[in-house]
Design a protein around this nucleic acid. Sequence first.
DNA 1: TAAGTTTTAGTATGGACATTCTAGAATGGA
DNA 2: TCCATTCTAGAATGTCCATACTAAAACTTA
Lengths: 198, 198
Amino acid sequence: MGRKREFDEEAVLAGAMMAFRRHGYAGLSILELEAATQISAGSLYNAYGDKEGLYRAVFDFYFRKVIDPRIGSAQTLDDLEKVAIDLFNPPFSDGLGCLVTNAAVEFRNSAGTGGYFAGRGLDTIEAAALRAVRADMGDGNEPAALRIVLLYQGMLVLTRAGRLSNAYKDAVRAEFDRLRRQAKSTFPAIREQNAKGD
Amino acid sequence: MGRKREFDEEAVLAGAMMAFRRHGYAGLSILELEAATQISAGSLYNAYGDKEGLYRAVFDFYFRKVIDPRIGSAQTLDDLEKVAIDLFNPPFSDGLGCLVTNAAVEFRNSAGTGGYFAGRGLDTIEAAALRAVRADMGDGNEPAALRIVLLYQGMLVLTRAGRLSNAYKDAVRAEFDRLRRQAKSTFPAIREQNAKGD
DNA sequence: TAAGTTTTAGTATGGACATTCTAGAATGGA
DNA sequence: TCCATTCTAGAATGTCCATACTAAAACTTA
């Protein structure tokens, strides 16, 4: 069956993920990818076909390791608040932002890999926000969910600009507090009802 | 004093601005800039030194024509709401987003031109939000101002991803309505006091 | 109108980059 | 132990790009 791969694919993808997160797609050269992954260009091309193939693999990895477990599985406002506030804590406070947001800005809604994964990531985030708001606040509060999406994307822009100061943490927490308060006062039975459903 | 410039500088900067807004800095070639500005590379280099010099000039133009008059001069929540809602209307609904936000994502807080203007633009936006919130709501509501910054930056990410649907318009309007309502109920005298000051 | 200067368009140029190619090394099966 | 296959590293290739250069055109001043 031929020679075995010498590299640890998870380590390569993790290294490439960091590099893509830092430099974007076009801004990252194969030379830099060799350094970030610790494998040669020959091996990268053999394993992933081309730079875009590696980008695809990195996005799959990012969804599998980050987006899906953290956001795709979020069910409540508390879950989403944790996602947001974690931007102030390691490892998410590294100022590199989110591959999805960065790709959305770099590729817009274009046809290729970047546009596709950006759209899929934003879908996941929007769906999670709607799910959490409906669960905790009931129907009719979709605007609150969309504001959470906007707040979160805004945080990712500011963290990348190195401007997500602690003042923003209070601002975001206050918004989640307000939503939970509103949930309790308007639909007092919803949380308990959900709890029963477990 | 030598031959006169044949091009209209405002037209060149406007064309280059659109192109930089669409493609970012690294993603835009001199060849594309020739097409966008309708002048030759020779003239571009003669007038602006290099690509980065043109980028600087475009950013100056963008601040002078867009950021300063629209955001730098905003004094009230109404003013800011107009800025935000205009993202749903031409010419701001073109899906290209804001040069400042795009540069913040492309350059992070790096040392060069992009990082500098991104920071300056975000300063302007944050200052405007704080100014408007203090004017309409009084002191102590800075978190509300920071949330406006986040919402706006989030809108710019989503518009660039082609995902700023009309549902987001309602969500943003509702937030400004809420802030104005809160302003009225908590500090009923503030608006009238400001009105007197005119 | 001659001289000097700036602008313009177009043509080099040199470098960076993604990708391909090559040769050798490792692996498993016959 | 040979053979076919896959992997690896590094060198070679061709393209694209930012920028420099060149010569002609247009303008100002004397």
